[in-house]
Write a protein that binds this DNA or RNA. Structure first.
Lengths: 339, 339
DNA sequence: CGGCACAGGGAAAGGGCTTTCCTCTGACGT
DNA sequence: ACGTCAGAGGAAAGCCCTTTCCCTGTGCCG
């Protein structure tokens, strides 16, 4: 690899001059030298070493994002919003997938710190795990203390700024829609108990139930993994335990799709026999059969706001913003048969 | 941010000693000093500056991947395979989304070079654009010349090793399945003409047509964007031009889903009225209605092999490997009505 | 014509870390 | 008692770049 010094030598100038030309410094350089240098750059195919630059420069220009999995549409959307703002502001973003492994999350915080990122953004549900939360907070605080910026999406009790998707409200909205239609036998296919997102959405559901003078007994809640197969397994369990179910509330769209598959396999039609609702409004939600009634969260905007908070050094901190949920009515929810 | 020197000072030792302890060097250090140093590290919350390390060390340990979009399931799978191998081999991976913008691709090659990556992996269709290909090749060669490793997925005529998904064979397979059933009025919803993937899949389709003494007239091919909405638009156009169509071949699953949506909206049932087939076997393909008959490419394996080639310095280069396609039969393809 | 300002360029000091090469002890052998 | 050697730790030379500070020479003003 050619270095700055190589270019300088070949062009017969000092390293300082090359640096100034390559970086477009305001300092004036004669056209002759500029030509010589640019020619040398081309001939040697010189590209500055980004690490050396980072070391030599003072200001940081890259931000790190930790998500559960970018290929999950939920995080893909958040990341999209984030990336947009990042490139508007001339920042590079490093994406880390934790795959819902708390330890990996901890490691990534260190890694991002080692990379000298300007800000760390943590997106995705938190965990009901006190020891972990404490350790994560310690690491985050250490980073904050040395001038780092932190912003989190949907995490309670963490240092730094926060954008909170209205999970409780979303749960309430979808629950109200279901109970208002008169469903009495409602099963919930829930994501893992350990995730705060689960608890929040469930809390909203419970509030809706209460308002309609219903309850959500725990035997009607099946916890499973946060994906299609988890949804299928949960639905299977729920249905076996109580075949009278007229509605299944899945705590995200992937799980709802798993539910749909099981129902179809059992010869039950949706929504005539059983209604199914999802959560998150992933792009595919409108393309399954029947199209999913679900809850939309402004994910792109959430991502954009999260990085906005982190990069905006002006206002005092920490700041917490809410992102509202809305009900998206499609065809998978209908009144129960006997109603 | 605490530095190595800070830690050394606080522990009352030299920087060399701290470095040795922190990095687990084979050199023996007394337990006493080790304790003092580790305590100082903890107290100062010291994390080594990754950029300084990279500068000081000789061996590179991160690889860069350029894909069209990681959140697209196609690339998500490839990336998954890639990541697995990367972490097995202790490599970090930087993911870059080009969003199918050639210029961005060019920029990312420079950026990855600047980041001193050990290898660059380019995944995703190439472009029928001679000037661009030439420029990209020039950049890649420059990188190769300075000891970099390059490996590409599904790109012809590019410097470096290559893993080639069998797009032509896949096209042939799906085409054969369609024509063998007796379909005569077949429409193709194709991805952009500019992409080599499109040409390859189309070529396979044509070969299948020829074998069945059929042709694929260009008015039966509608080019659109490589996504759900493109698929919908293409289907719309095809159907308006020729309502007798009994089968629609979409060049990827997203487009097939768009086709399904249009057909449903028009009151046509699949596959009774019109058959639809996809390509890629994305996870969702089995969950739409009806489940999609499509072509599976071993994407995870392709990703793994691509990085494997790049990291394997032993064998001579360049090497080219093929990844076979297989037909996945589900329910969206059936004989035409009149057959 | 002396003096000054300023344009144009270079020298060199970092920035944080790794690693080679030394130095200094103390233990061991004879 | 002396030479040797292994063990333990430090000094310092890089790695590649940016940026401040300084020097030279020219043009211009008074």
């Amino acid at each position: 690899m050619a270095t700055l010094a190589d270019v300088a030598r070949r062009a017969g100038v000092s390293a300082a001059t090359v640096s100034r030309i390559v970086n477009g410094s305001p300092k004036i350089v004669s056209d002759e030298l500029r030509d010589r240098v640019l020619r040398a750059v081309r001939e040697l195919r010189y590209v500055p070493n980004a690490h050396a630059q980072l070391l030599a420069r003072s200001h940081r220009t890259t931000v790190g994002v930790i998500v559960h999995d970018v290929s999950d549409p939920y995080f893909a959307e958040i990341t999209r919003g984030l990336q947009r703002v990042a490139s508007e502001r001339g920042r590079l973003v490093i994406i880390c997938n934790s795959y819902r492994d708390p330890d990996r999350e901890l490691e990534y915080v260190e890694l991002l710190r080692a990379q000298q990122v300007e800000a760390i953004i943590l997106a995705g549900s938190g965990y009901h795990d006190h020891a972990f939360t404490k350790e994560l907070n310690a690491k985050l605080s250490a980073y904050l203390a040395t001038g780092g910026r932190v912003s989190v999406v949907g995490r309670h009790k963490l240092a730094g700024d926060a954008v909170m998707p209205a999970n409780e409200q979303g749960g309430y909205l979808i629950g109200s829609a279901v109970f208002a239609l008169g469903h009495r036998h409602v099963g919930v296919v829930a994501s893992p108990k350990l995730l705060t997102t689960t608890t929040d959405r469930l809390a909203g559901l419970r509030r809706a139930a209460r308002e309609h003078h219903r309850t959500l007994p725990s035997r009607r809640i099946e916890y499973a993994t946060f994906d299609r197969d988890g949804g299928a397994a949960g639905t299977e369990a729920l249905l076996s335990a109580d075949p009278r179910l007229t509605a299944i509330v899945a705590l995200n769209d992937s799980m709802a799709i798993g539910a749909l598959a099981v129902l179809r396999a059992r010869g039950l039609t949706v929504p005539a026999d059983v209604s199914v609702v999802g959560f998150d409004d992933m792009p595919i939600a409108r393309d399954v059969t029947p199209p999913l009634t679900t809850i939309r969260l402004p994910l792109v905007e959430i991502g954009a706001r999260a990085i906005g908070l982190a990069l905006d050094t002006a206002r005092p901190r920490p700041r917490v913003e809410e992102a509202a949920a809305t009900l998206v009515e499609r065809e998978s929810l209908a009144p129960p048969r006997e109603a």
